[in-house]
Simulated assay, not measured.
Amino acid sequence: MRTRMIHSSFLLICLFAMSEQCACPVQITQAIVCFDPIVVEAKIESVAEKSYYTNYQISVTKFYKGKREYDTLSNKTTLKTPKHSAACGPVVLKVGTSYILSVSAYAGIMQHNLCELQVEASSATNTLLNGIAGKYQENCDCKIPSMYEVPHMGPRTNNQCGHSTQGCDGVDSICARDRNGQCNWQNC
């Protein structure tokens, strides 16, 4: 009886630990850009570790979306990221590198986790650049055709890819209206 209770307790502890994992929806860039209020290119200037989060000091070099939202922030140089997997971290950015990032804003500070867009600017695809320059936002009302039928456009070079069961194929593709008004994946 005691052995059974120990095994049951151990099983419950394991299940609880597994339940504290980050669960991001399918990483389709268009959906991320449409959802997040700010999309920027930013250079990582420095990093400071805290108990539960990491603060990156950034300098924004280009806006793709959310300039007005950014202007309302009380802190325009700090990007707060989680350190633990339960909060969709850790986010690892290299000092001196520029990234295209989607961010949320809470309490006047930019926040970012692994469920959001994070691509080194130097390796951004033409499809991604066309999308964040306006194609994604123009077509936010398009329903992504199917999360299981993502088009295959080649690999993506960011740390989100390892967290997707589908890998990185097609995540930067653009879903837009065709001449008949139907939402379909576009060849870009």
Rank of each mutant, 00 (worst) to 15 (best):
Y70I: 08
I144H: 15
F63W: 07
Q186N: 06
S102W: 08
A31C: 01
H7W: 05
Q30E: 02
A23P: 00
S19E: 11
R179P: 04
Q27I: 01
N113D: 12
G167L: 00
N187Q: 11
L11Q: 12
Q118I: 01
P151G: 06
C183K: 07
G108S: 11
T29F: 13
S102N: 02
V33Q: 03
Q118S: 06
K43D: 13
L73N: 12
V92Y: 10
S19Q: 11
D36R: 11
E116R: 00
T3K: 09
E116W: 00
L79R: 00
Q186G: 02
K43Y: 08
S102V: 03
M5N: 13
S164P: 08
C88E: 11
V47C: 04
N55K: 06
C183Q: 09
Q118H: 02
Y106H: 06
C22H: 10
E116S: 02
M18L: 14
P37V: 05
M5P: 00
N139V: 02
H84E: 14
Q118C: 04
L93C: 10
Q118K: 03
I58V: 11
E69D: 12
K94M: 06
D71E: 10
S173R: 09
I13M: 14
D141T: 15
W185E: 08
I144R: 15
V33T: 09
V39Q: 01
Y99N: 10
A105N: 12
C168T: 00
I44E: 12
V92E: 07
